[in-house]
Simulated scan of single mutants.
Amino acid sequence: MDAMYEVFGWIGSILIVMSLMQARMLVFRWMNLIGSLIATGYNLIYGIWPYVAMNVAIVVINAYWLNRLYKEARDPHVYQVLPMPADGRFLQHVLHVYQEDIARFAPAFTVDPAAGTTRHSFMVVRGDEAVGVVAVREAGDGVGEVELDWVKPRFRNFTPGQFVYQDSRALHDAGFRQLRLTPHEMTDREYLRKAGFRTERTEWVRDLTA
């Protein structure tokens, strides 16, 4: 029986350590919460009360932040959409810093727009922190081709790009009435559905309301 409890305790410890290696906030909080719950049970069994108290406190802290993160995930007052010039220095800085991660999700995307094209860039921010970028190229007649829809790893579980498509007038104000997107192997189809896109032949399409 003691051996089983030891395995139980090790699982909790491993989860806590692994949680500290996670870039995504949501994954970190959930792994840390589960690991702390297991550690609480393990220390209760052996009556190690200081560690019981510590892990209970960690569980409560994680539960608080998970509740807050889920509430904020769809709050347009938390996430704002800022239209940015394609050659803006801060936008360029963000794109260069995360260029390797961006290349995984949009391998055809280049920081500088192709000659003769017009690109509109929209940065999603949380407070004073840049969270993600959506870049749309004018294709004519109010149609926009989504060249980039990228989010920082730590915010990726919350898909804040939805605010560009659903809760912001930024795209409409830029003159777009419809968006088109050609997916690739890293494209999250379920995210596109939730963002209001539909399939049309080989593309995903979203009509924008006034």
Results as ranks from 00 to 15, higher is better:
67 N>G: 13
33 L>N: 01
32 N>D: 06
139 A>R: 03
88 G>K: 10
32 N>F: 01
151 V>M: 13
157 N>F: 10
194 K>V: 03
131 V>Y: 11
47 G>M: 05
10 W>P: 03
98 Y>C: 11
143 V>Y: 09
52 V>I: 11
85 P>L: 11
188 D>Y: 04
57 A>I: 04
117 T>W: 07
94 V>L: 07
5 Y>T: 08
125 V>D: 01
75 D>C: 08
5 Y>G: 13
126 R>D: 15
120 H>N: 08
1 M>V: 10
190 E>R: 10
45 I>Y: 15
59 V>P: 01
100 E>C: 02
63 A>N: 07
172 H>A: 14
107 P>M: 08
54 M>V: 04
80 Q>Y: 03
130 A>N: 11
123 M>R: 14
191 Y>K: 13
12 G>W: 08
153 P>S: 06
118 T>H: 10
199 T>M: 10
11 I>T: 14
147 E>V: 01
114 A>V: 02
163 F>E: 00
107 P>K: 09
207 D>Y: 13
149 D>L: 12
91 L>N: 03
78 V>Y: 12
135 A>N: 15
88 G>Q: 06
21 M>S: 13
182 T>R: 06
209 T>Y: 10
26 L>I: 15
139 A>S: 11
197 F>P: 12
176 F>K: 00
39 A>G: 02
118 T>P: 01
169 R>K: 08
149 D>F: 04
32 N>H: 03
205 V>C: 04
